[in-house]
Design a protein around this nucleic acid. Structure first.
Length: 716
RNA sequence: GCACGCUUAGCUCAGUUGGUAGAGCAUCGUCUUGACGUGACGAGGGUCGUAGGUUCAAUUCCUACAGCGUGCACCA
């Protein structure tokens, strides 16, 4: 017997060695499996695209969970004989990475606004490439059996090429347009966002009732009101029936006399405030819509840095944060304030990264027309062509898709895929120009400049399933698309999953994946969100170092249902370290007691052993079904339970007596052998390292061919 | 306000075709001869958020309410 077994199981001595063994076998690559006769050439495929990992830091607990779940799926399918592809990737993660890098710059006393954009791009690229190496070795540490020969990066030439083709095609199909629209602007990060990068925050502020000529208007943002020259009310409001649409009135306003125009619009809520409001179309989405409807003038009041423009008169150049109180003072003096409600509860929109209040601005940018894309997706989703796990995410998705708005894909940051377009200096017309050949405006003949914006990172990652497989001509695309499962965090159901469905459908005509499996957040032991500032971040690598990757993986899986968040505690992982050791020691017992024993072709069990044999067969049936239903949390628990409390506590204990007294000893030995080898196979997807190591020891002892457990056949 | 969840043992959570509740950890007791003390055997502990309804029967289905959580471009 191998003397390793005489000591407790040591993950540190084992894991790297085993991973190397797997990598060298080539079995992570489905083509190699076919070539070596492990998978049938015509076998059904199972494709899983790994969510591209952000290459801007270290692996966190959430990644650990992703790797555990996805590796379980993949190893299971591979053992079942599927032509299994798990394609790994890394994400440049545009804005996210830029933020991380900006923080680093801040520490060095630099800011991105002083660095020339090409140089900044190069710096962030170096930073990303350095991190990529780190991340990749950490993914390997988790035991991920993904096909590294097919690894992709979101900035790879062929990915960018696909993204450009999509952009062009959507533009030609009239699904992408450039237009002056209201966008969400962060004055700290100096970029616009889509609606998803915004976080709502509830606040109690003051609501000011201002005298506007004969009217009283309510506003929470007096600092935007300088240019207000339209006063809007509902056409059915009896209180204001004497005023007519288009009527002009002279009135005294913040910085002097002004002429206001009456506008009647149905969007006004008669119940709110006084039922009358003035509008600021440049800095408010609703006001913008009203202005569009009635073709009203729009004027910018606040600049990109949150400072007041000359229209504010004496307040010009003031930051809006400071200006508000000063403006109120002045209005007070002029007697234009009717009253102030200081307990006004409302929701303001903030940057999801820095919490800065979002300032809507009108910008000329690229937008994706979402309605037609959403309709296609809804049709498939409502017809259950895509299965959501957990199910209720389907409703959430449908709700979002039904209320979808156009998607701003322009970002004013350097770190990303440049938008291949030219902009006319004269008329601001935007032209898609992938070949970089346009030099004069197609509309007015004016000079053009290259668009300096980059794509929203989700525009490119939204194309990930077909882009990575080499749409349209690559053989991989033909073989492995549509993929089977998209496993990712529930958090990015809109950002990523829903957009992949829409873009995948649009480009390939097929859904990109059949099943969406969403896992929840990984929280600390107390159920709190992990954050660096709270200091409660649990590093998965420290846990694997302490307890072994197997313990970490199965500890993450057991008791963790899809969609629900998971409280991760060290105690739990520690418990599963004991489990790995239990298996280790049970193996020692089996090997010691079945030395020089050759089992017969057909087992001749006694009554109780036969029962045990049938019990395990029943278990296999059950868990195979549950594996197919993605209920890994149940399967892992059942296996844990069976191994410990049936195989070890009952079968091994029973065999001691039989072997010692030599009564039905053969029956006992056969049972020990078959149950152990079967259980190793069943456990392998969950705890791949210790099972593979034991497998190699057993095989050596029995002088059989040294096949890897990772490609053994799943028991039936 | 709308949408979507959650509320089961001290803690973390399972419990899908409705039949008087389960796991892990924790707690307590006993054992301690050889696979493993990273062990074995055993025990305690829940009116399954509240109130109704459907049913022979509800933790499971329906309704209302409460508390907690998450998401959201009518909110001036």
């Amino acid at each position: 017997m191998d003397e390793k077994l005489l000591k407790p199981y040591d993950p540190k001595e084992t894991e790297d060695k085993i991973y190397k063994l797997w990598e060298e076998s080539g079995f992570f690559n489905p083509d190699v499996c076919v070539k070596k006769g492990i998978t049938k050439p015509d076998a059904e495929t199972f494709t899983l695209i790994m969510p591209p990992t952000n290459a801007n830091g270290s692996l966190h607990a959430g990644h650990g969970l992703v790797m555990a779940i996805e590796d379980i799926m993949v190893r299971y399918k591979r053992m079942q004989g599927f032509k299994t592809l798990w394609l790994p990737g890394l994400d440049h993660a545009g804005f996210e990475t830029q933020i991380v890098y900006e923080k680093q710059l801040e520490k060095e006393g630099r800011t991105r606004f002083e660095i020339e954009s090409k140089k900044l791009y190069k710096e962030i690229l170096d930073f990303t490439l350095k991190n990529s190496k780190n991340i990749k070795s950490q993914i390997k540490k988790m035991g991920a059996s993904c096909d590294w020969s097919r690894e992709k990066f979101t900035l790879d030439d062929n990915i960018v090429k696909t993204v450009y083709q999509t952009f062009k095609r959507m533009y030609d199909d009239n699904l992408i347009y450039r237009g002056n629209r209201i966008v969400s602007w962060c004055s700290k990060h100096q970029t616009s966002f889509s609606d998803l990068e915004i976080k709502d925050e509830e606040r109690i502020d003051s609501l000011y009732y201002l005298k506007y000529g004969p009217f009283v208007i309510a506003t929470s943002r007096p600092e935007t009101k300088f240019g207000d020259k339209y006063v809007v009310m509902h056409p059915d409001d009896k209180r204001y029936k004497d005023y007519t649409h288009g009527q002009k009135i002279e009135l005294e306003w913040i910085n002097g006399p002004t002429t206001a125009t009456i506008i009647k619009d149905n969007s006004i809520d008669m119940e709110f405030g006084t039922g009358v409001m003035t509008i600021t179309p440049w800095h408010d989405a609703t006001d913008f819509e009203i202005a569009e409807r009635h073709k009203l003038d729009k004027e910018q009041i606040i600049d990109e840095f949150g400072k007041l423009l000359p229209i504010a008169g004496e307040f010009t150049g003031q930051h809006i944060k400071k200006a508000r109180t000063l403006i109120i003072e002045k209005l007070q003096k002029k007697g234009l304030i009717e009253k102030i409600d200081e307990n006004y509860k409302h929701v303001i929109r903030t940057c999801y990264k820095c919490g800065t209040t979002i300032e809507p601005q009108i910008k000329n940018q690229w937008f994706v027309k979402m309605k037609p894309l959403a309709e296609q997706a809804l049709e498939k989703i409502n017809n259950k062509k895509i299965e959501y796990i957990p199910e209720h995410y389907q409703k959430i998705t449908v709700h979002w898709l039904e209320n979808i708005i156009d998607w701003n894909i322009s970002r004013q940051i350097v770190w990303g895929i440049p938008i291949p377009a030219k902009i006319c200096n004269k008329c601001e017309n935007g032209m898609v120009d992938i070949e970089n050949i346009i030099s004069k405006c197609e509309k007015c003949g004016g000079d053009v400049r290259t668009d300096s914006d980059t794509f929203d990172t989700w525009f490119s990652s939204g194309q990930w399933p077909f882009a990575t497989l080499g749409y349209p001509d690559n053989n991989d695309f033909k073989t492995f698309y549509p993929t089977n499962v998209m496993e990712t965090a529930g958090e990015i159901i809109f950002f990523w999953v829903s957009r992949m469905i829409m873009l995948g459908l649009y480009i390939t005509g097929e859904i990109p994946f059949k099943t969406v499996y969403l896992h929840g957040l990984v929280l600390d032991a107390k159920g709190q969100k992990m954050s660096k500032s709270k200091g409660n971040v649990i590093d998965p690598l420290i846990l694997t170092e302490k307890f072994g990757t197997d313990a970490f993986r199965i500890g993450m899986i057991i008791g963790n249902t899809p969609g629900t968040s998971l409280a991760l505690s060290e105690d739990k992982i520690r418990g599963y370290k004991n489990f790995a050791n239990k298996i280790w020691n049970a193996t020692r017992f089996v090997l010691e007691n079945t030395k020089n024993f050759t089992p017969p072709e057909t087992p001749n069990y006694d009554e109780e052993d036969k029962k045990s044999d049938e019990e395990l067969k029943l278990l296999i049936k059950e868990i195979t079904k549950e594996m197919d239903e993605y209920k890994f949390y149940i399967v892992a628990e059942k296996l844990y339970h069976y191994f410990w409390h049936t195989f070890a506590d009952v079968i091994i204990e029973r065999s001691k007596v039989k072997i010692l007294k030599n009564q039905n000893a053969d029956s006992a030995k056969i049972l020990l052998n078959t149950q152990l080898t079967t259980l190793l196979k069943l456990l392998h997807p969950f705890i791949p390292f210790v099972t593979e190591e034991i497998w190699s020891i057993i095989k050596k002892d029995t002088k059989e061919k040294n096949d890897l457990l990772m490609v053994a056949k799943w028991p039936a």
